[in-house]
Design a protein around this nucleic acid. Structure first.
Lengths: 243, 243
DNA sequence: TATTGAACATCACGTAACGTGTTGTTTTAT
DNA sequence: ATAAAACAACACGTTACGTGATGTTCAATA
């Protein structure tokens, strides 16, 4: 028999938590002293350990209560559900990470806080992956989309920065004469980074390009927007580069 | 000027939320009708959009309030912190995913719910990655640890299942005669899966094995425990297989 | 055995970001 | 003018406890 204090020390759970678990009937001490002090038996301790294990898994106390009095089948179902939830949450966080990174780049390269861009980035990444893919569906199939997303994830920090810089430099100079040398340089740098990004898969790059031209507004592809796409088209026309 | 209802429809934010944001002073309508109804100006809408963008980033309303009246430098710092947090959270979820998967396999292959094993798995994965790596430090360096973790992540569902089954079959028969044919078969199957797992990197497998022998208790490596390690050692001695 | 300090029980309020519901008032459409 | 819709303001509920406050019981010591 353990008092609440010793049990607390042994398990690392606070007294208040044990008090609370008693209150909601999750882990009740099986006996008390004549004076009313809680006494936990070995069985109670076991129950507590199970509760803690389920808590690590991320279940709510209500759910834990339900699970602990259900059958093996329900168990597998609950844990499977939790597993799926964890996977979805990871997907969400991956998107969020990219969005935050994008915002950081935008602040860094624009050297100011551009709210319209930040809002666009957040809206862009806030949608479900499914919706995101659908936007590009006109010119690319699912496998190609997956390739693009994948190659983005395997890019090094350094390469991502170079790519971002290439795009942001175009944004900064998007109103210069498309026939100028600087315009050509910027476009060529962009093309170089884009090819590097897609591992020189010209087919993939071509399809992406067609898709980009079709999209109307917003953050089209990473930091690229309509202005950048149009700039590249103008330079291409002026110098006869690209399809 | 928008009433609370129209603003709610336009942004998808509930009336109660706008009410609440007004109450805590996060987004206050800049004017009211003579009767006291809220009227939001374009500036108010902009403020709301910024708040929402920051909310998507995962900041608390308190933090958002603080961020919205701070300088650019603090911004970068806050977003960087948030980015780091998101990364850490992803690490945590990755561990949790593996733990849940482990629990599912244990229920599936043992065909019952084994609480001691579940508790062990959860304790094992509940520690920080740093601590986890330290447990194996005696025989492996960091790079090798990283390799092992990596190869585990790149394994297919199918391969993981095969590996799990190999280990669980040993657990089931861990008391049979080490000299028997079945024992040899089980050990050979284990070895085959282990080699496949490490892409036939004998050096790495050898070091892992040394490390496993040194560890005293608990869920040593995935579903492997001390019993499995000892079984493999006994079979090895009996048949002269492995180092 | 009396005392005293530590441990304990019980209660109450606070947390974050709203959802839900009630009551009474204002606006809008007819 | 009237009825319906929209609105303001308030209150209580939610999770899993943390942080006290107050009064009681236990264990060790004098």
């Amino acid at each position: 028999m353990y008092t609440i204090g010793t049990l607390s020390k042994n398990t690392g759970v606070t007294r208040r938590t044990l008090d609370y678990y008693d209150e909601i009937g999750l882990v009740k001490p099986s006996s008390r002293t004549s004076g009313g002090h809680r006494l936990y038996s070995e069985d109670d301790v076991m129950r507590l350990e199970r509760v803690l294990a389920l808590k690590y898994m991320g279940f709510s106390l209500d759910k834990i209560n339900a699970i602990l009095q259900s059958s093996k089948l329900n168990w597998q179902e609950s844990i499977q559900e939790q597993l799926d939830m964890v996977k979805r949450e990871q997907e969400r966080l991956k998107m969020l990470e990219q969005a935050l990174q994008g915002v950081l780049y935008s602040i860094e390269f624009e050297e100011k806080i551009s709210w319209p861009i930040i809002s666009l980035i957040m809206k862009f990444y806030h949608q479900e992956p499914e919706e995101l893919i659908q936007q590009y569906n006109h010119f690319m199939n699912e496998e190609e989309m997956r390739k693009i997303i994948e190659c983005n994830e395997t890019m090094s920090e350094e390469d991502i920065r170079e790519w971002m810089k290439a795009v942001y430099d175009i944004k900064k100079h998007q109103d210069i004469d498309p026939h100028s040398d600087l315009a050509l340089q910027l476009a060529e740098r962009w093309l170089k980074q884009a090819e590097k990004m897609f591992d020189h898969d010209e087919q993939l790059l071509g399809n992406l390009w067609e898709s980009l031209k079709g999209l109307e507004e917003g953050v089209v592809f990473y930091p690229m927007d309509k202005g950048v796409v149009e700039f590249l088209q103008k330079v291409s026309k002026a110098h006869g580069e690209m399809g």
